[in-house]
Design a protein around this nucleic acid. Structure first.
Lengths: 269, 269
DNA sequence: TGGTATAACTGGCTTAAGCCAGATCTGGCT
DNA sequence: AGCCAGATCTGGCTTAAGCCAGTTATACCA
């Protein structure tokens, strides 16, 4: 540790004495990072140097670094020197992204405006549109049968400055999508997705968003380029129309180091 | 990650040939877990046995297991045999937990009812109430000065069947809390926290919830008993009264393997 | 039967030596 | 100035041997 060693500890941590070396070293490094001895964005000394400095084997130094990496404090891009991770500004996505008024005024998707707000260039890619049987949880939310009904599955990838930030998979009952661009075209035209739903007589009136978080699968790690020690946020979104009928489910998977959610909700009674 | 064409592989993963042994082994184990060769809750064979079976050193087998652990697939309690993690039912907390009507009808906190819905016993602990200067982000949201104003800081720990599930730290402007139980007592009486705010003339009218996710700090790992490979969800909640004034900020930190969020939101135009 | 001491086993963790591929630097050349 | 080849450095990853502390099973005893 640095200046603040001694008996009276401010963090409620175990006695440093009997900690295994890699943990002791991880703790000291962590403190140094938090106290900005190593500043965000800065390179850490090499494993060999650190190993020397802390009196452990190189392997052990590597283990200590791995611990901090898994805590999301350090970024190790393949074989390059590890860097102290910088806290990034989050894209804050909220419920107002579904506002009918906003959509009609700007004609722009809320993802785009949020990204542009950070001076970055948004891009949305729609690599696949298929007609399939819905996954169970989707059928459930749409109130249809997973065995008998069909849905259109639209896969969307969202980028900011060509960096992948989230995936959204939208499921639309076949009855609604049939014969429209919803079932065929990546380009949704003015008013985007919800504009087309409105054409079909489904005006978004309320939504349900179920949020959870977990570590990414290897596929997600690769596809979204999720750094080590960073979770993903799952949002299962259900769009509900003026007749209280669900007409669309979208499953978002977002990198948690880039995305956050921001809801402003009126408490009815 | 989908259009996995080609011959035999079902996952779009790298060619198995040139993968480092630990990764190859991790991939095989992961597939076996996903295909329920090893079932949720089941014990994995010991590292020594697995090492033999996959033709690697014991250390390497341990590394492979660590990979799956960091993905949240496996649970290793200290020196006991690793177990395939069971997906747990989530406590689903939503905005209706602030419903004034609900509160008045049941007089029961929404955390309690949600936990009881799962047949478990809820407990809320309030280990500390202090008068302090607010952290920057809290002052900002309360519209007060971080240097001049004071707040009451109430720390709450939430348990289900004596298992810690989340922490909530509530900040209340001193002007509001002064001279009330808000500033002094762990026990909030009928209608709980928001009942007392109403006594002070602040009826909750809307809320803002800012959600993000990250890996837990070592303190959180220990305090919340967060298993390896499990993130936490941060919710910064701001309560806003009938005059559009923020009157309370609560910062929740929840284990992501137990907690989820569930919002039903009316889209106002 | 119930409890407990003990033995066998398990994962945690370290060291040391070493190979490799990618990153980065350096100095020389055009 | 710009480029580039090669040398050097770095982390990734493996093996092997080994100690330790906690877990678990066994066998024995009251």
């Amino acid at each position: 540790m640095t200046e603040h060693s001694h008996d009276a500890e401010e963090t409620g941590r175990e006695p440093a004495e009997k900690l295994p070396p890699r943990r002791r070293m991880a703790n000291e490094l962590r403190d140094d990072i938090n106290n900005e001895v190593y500043r965000p964005g800065e390179l850490l000394p090499s494993q060999r140097v650190l190993a020397d400095r802390y009196g452990v084997a190189r392997n052990t130094a590597g283990e200590a670094i791995k611990i901090l990496e898994s805590e999301g404090l350090i970024d190790s891009r393949d074989r390059a020197r590890p860097r102290v991770r910088e806290r990034r500004r989050l894209l804050r996505l909220g419920a107002e992204r579904y506002s009918n008024r906003l959509r009609e005024e700007t004609g722009k998707s809320p993802f785009r405006s949020e990204v542009e707000k950070q001076g970055k260039t948004p891009r949305v890619d729609c690599p696949s549109i298929e007609k399939i049987r819905p996954p169970g949880y989707v059928a459930e939310r749409l109130g249809i049968s997973a065995d008998e009904a069909f849905v259109v599955r639209r896969e969307n990838w969202y980028f900011a400055d060509e960096e992948p930030v989230q995936i959204g998979i939208t499921y639309i009952p076949w009855e609604i999508a049939e014969g429209t661009v919803l079932a065929t075209s990546a380009n949704m035209g003015k008013g985007s997705l919800y504009g087309r739903f409105e054409d079909q007589g489904h005006r978004i009136t309320s939504i349900r968003e179920e949020i959870s978080s977990r570590m990414p699968t290897p596929e997600e790690t690769e596809g979204l380029k999720v750094p080590a020690g960073v979770p993903v946020i799952d949002v299962v979104h259900t769009g509900i129309d003026q007749d209280e009928q669900p007409f669309e489910v979208t499953h978002f998977t977002m990198r948690a180091d880039i995305n956050g959610l921001d809801y402003r909700i009126r408490i009815e009674d």
